[in-house]
Structures are given as structure tokens and as C-alpha cells.
Amino acid sequence: MSPEKMVHMANQIAIFFKTQPGDDAADRVAAHLRDFWEPRMRQQLRDHVAQGGAGLDDLVVQAARSI
């Protein structure tokens, strides 16, 4: 998947959970990614974060630690 597309998809998820009440948004993003993203996609996301996470919402960067 192109990095732009992955960043776009991950940020969309973050944007939704950001609007939700509570202070566990990062956990919920992580849970969503674990539930719906295939391991290859999560690996690509982790790699992207390791390389600086260009373009990613902070919430995704936080969530990426636990996927």
C-alpha cells in the first residue's frame, strides 16, 4: 500500500476516535487497528512510525505502540 494511502486510512480512524468521549482514544484506535488491519498492514504502519511517522496523527503514533 502506498504510504500516503496508509497514512490517510490510519488518520481517518484517529479522527473518529478523537471525537469520542473518554480519554482512551489511543487504546481504541489501537484496538480498531488490531481488529481490522491484517498483520502486514500493521507492520507497515509500525515501520512507518519507526521511520518518523511522517503525516501520521499523534494518536496513531501513540496507538502504533500497542498493535
Binding site: 500500500m1 502506498s2 494511502k5 481488529d35 481490522f36 488491519w37 491484517e38 498483520p39 502486514r40 498492514m41
Partner: peptide, 17 residues
């Protein structure tokens, strides 16, 4: 682990996996 969804399959195909 969850598998690939249709768009993900196509992305993974372009990536060669």
C-alpha cells in the same frame, strides 16, 4: 489474526505479497 479485505488484497498484490 484478521485477514485482508478486498482493497487490502489488491494493495498487497501490488506490493508483491
Amino acid at each position: 489474526e484478521p485477514g485482508l479485505r478486498i482493497p487490502n488484497m489488491l494493495d498487497a498484490a501490488v506490493d508483491g505479497t
